[in-house]
């Protein structure tokens, strides 16, 4: 059997369902535990997806967890990622990764010291549509790109929600 790394989640809110549901599509990872300050949230997700519910402290001390996914609110991202790295685990964070460059550089130092990895969402750019655009650009299909126009307007009401 191919080797897999054990994955635990801190923050069992809305977006955690997407990770628990979609992770089994991929090689290399196995979802094993979920933790949340609200124990009931962790228990509900654990039951739903057949993993174990855990306290944050137990999750960070677990030998079978290699990577911890940080799905807390943006304002907590830095402190939680710091705790994950200091516990000797790789961290993968939801976006936004941190709220300042200084916080990010501090996490990098902590990770480098222990030889750990840091990763962060979004990963939608790995999607077929965006990789296709990448191949068009890299293949010179529209020549050198000199300009672009990007717009993101969120309708104030009635939009389909997809985030946290």
């Amino acid at each position: 059997m191919a080797k897999k790394l054990g994955v635990g989640v801190i923050g069992c809110g809305n977006i955690s369902a997407a990770y628990f549901m979609l992770a089994p599509l991929f090689k290399g990872i196995e979802m094993r535990a979920g933790a949340d300050l609200d124990v009931k949230m962790a228990q509900a997700r654990a039951k739903e997806f057949g993993v174990r519910a855990s306290s944050v402290a137990d999750l960070l001390a677990s030998d079978d967890i290699d990577i911890v996914v940080n799905l807390t609110i943006p304002a907590a991202h830095y402190e939680v990622s710091k705790a994950i790295l200091d516990a000797g685990k790789h961290v993968y964070s939801e976006k936004p990764f941190v709220l300042s460059v200084r916080e990010g550089q501090d996490l990098k130092k902590r990770a480098d010291r222990k030889g750990l990895r840091i990763g962060s969402a979004p990963d939608t750019f790995l999607g077929g549509a965006h990789q296709r655009v990448r191949s068009l650009i890299d293949g010179g299909k529209v020549g050198r790109v000199h300009q672009r126009h990007v717009l993101r307007h969120e309708p104030r009401y009635g939009a389909l929600a997809s985030e946290s």
């Binding site: 790394l5 599509l25 990577i67 993968y92 990895r117 962060s120 990963d123 790995l126």
Partner: peptide, 25 residues
């Protein structure tokens, strides 16, 4: 198409295969 967690899997595979991951620091 929804492949959220692909960046996480790419990081895990990067660790296992000793290569950089795409959704990097």
């Amino acid at each position: 198409a929804n492949y959220r967690a692909s960046g996480l899997a790419d990081m895990a595979l990067g660790i296992l295969e000793d290569r950089p991951h795409r959704c990097s620091l």
